[in-house]
């Protein structure tokens, strides 16, 4: 029987190398963290996900102790869903696009995996980013359409404007920009979400919808949400966000644009005594 799986061109047989994984584990909220190590064989095209999959099937630590499979969140494995974000060798990123040959090219190299620190841990590497989705509600990140009836096309838009919006719209709510931001803090209690810095991603989403022909109807409400505590003024201008964004979204540009719009809005309100 012929198998239909892809095979690379045949190459000379080489012993499979091993990479050492150090993983920060935690059994659940309020439980202490601990480190566990695993020696993982590395076939061609390995990434952090394939290594975690190998550990799930072979849950034995480097010193031979039986343990439980490591828990992590993942979905698309193509760096478009944002689920598998974690801290790898100290840097926040998606684990699916983290290729072992790049990150740990030699036999015996170490890869360290930790959960993101700005969101509460559910278990092991899986964190709860509900706060990010709540922030999208806070800035009303949607176009207020008149329902799903057949009402013709949307507003016309030039190619430049649509390319700008497309770039902003690639945000996958992964949280890298929050993890890297010195102003963004862990808030396990939802009561603290409204007053603590909202982070770069939702600010950029506010810009995305303010720039849309129909979306701009809610511009004033979006700006209001960002002019109060936890809003645009809490940005410390560290510019870490734009450096870690996997989609290279111009986050600092968005923060600047919203900052200017907020100033204009403040004047408008002052003179209109609203």
């Amino acid at each position: 029987m012929t198998t239909a799986t892809a095979t690379p061109p045949p190459t000379a047989g080489k012993a499979m190398r091993t990479v050492h994984f150090r993983i920060k584990r935690c059994d659940g909220p309020g439980k202490p963290s601990r480190w566990e190590s695993f020696n993982v064989p590395i076939p061609a095209n390995s990434n952090v996900i394939s290594c975690l999959q190998w550990i799930a099937a072979n849950p034995t630590t480097a010193d031979g102790k039986a343990t439980t499979p490591v828990v992590w969140e993942s979905s698309c494995l193509e760096e478009v869903c944002g689920a598998c974000t974690m801290v790898i060798n100290g840097k926040v990123r998606q684990s699916c696009s983290c290729l072992i040959d790049e990150y740990a090219p030699n036999d015996g190299d170490t890869v360290t995996l930790e959960p993101m620190s700005k969101f509460p841990v559910i278990r092991d590497l899986w964190v709860d980013r509900t706060r990010m989705f709540a922030a999208l509600k806070r800035v009303k990140a949607w176009v207020p359409i008149d329902g799903t009836y057949s009402l013709g096309a949307g507003p016309m838009e030039g190619p430049r404007a649509s390319e700008t919006r497309y770039k902003l719209s690639e945000c996958m709510t992964c949280g890298c920009c929050m993890e890297a931001c010195p102003q963004y803090h862990l808030q396990a209690d939802p009561a603290g979400w409204e007053t603590s810095f909202i982070g770069a991603a939702p600010i950029s989403q506010a810009r995305l919808f303010n720039d849309h022909g129909t979306g701009k109807q809610l511009k004033s409400e979006r700006l209001e949400a960002l002019m109060g505590p936890g809003g645009i003024n809490d940005c410390g201008n560290a510019q870490n966000c734009v450096q870690v964004c996997p989609k290279e979204i111009p986050l600092t540009e968005s923060i600047g644009a919203i900052g200017r719009a907020a100033t204009v809005e403040a004047f408008r309100r002052f003179f209109m005594a609203k």
Binding site: V143, I145, S150, G152, A153, G154, P159, S162, S169
Partner: peptide, 14 residues
Amino acid sequence: DLLDRMGVPFNRTN
């Protein structure tokens, strides 16, 4: 048309 109204950034012509 509906997706367009929802704000999907479809590629555009000149």
